[in-house]
């Protein structure tokens, strides 16, 4: 496990999510949170909004 990785115990469960968009979205927000772990109240809204826009647009 790399020093900046999310705990593999958590990732094992994320990998089981069948919907690709949702799985990748959750992976990305967890990685984002891991990188901001040192901050009490990190800025997140822009990053989250961007990720939501990116992954919510699955083909209908």
């Amino acid at each position: 496990m790399n020093k900046s990785d999310v705990n593999s115990l958590i990732l094992e469960h994320v990998d089981k999510i069948e919907n690709d968009n949702k799985r990748q979205f959750i992976n990305e927000i967890l990685t984002f949170e891991r990188s901001k772990m040192d901050r009490e109240q990190p800025h997140f809204k822009d990053e989250y909004d961007e990720l939501i826009e990116k992954y919510m647009s699955d083909p209908e």
Partner: peptide
């Protein structure tokens, strides 16, 4: 265990 990452993600969502 990094549960805090899940808590933060939930809070931010």
């Amino acid at each position: 265990s990094h549960i805090e990452l899940l808590n933060r993600s939930l809070d931010h969502l």
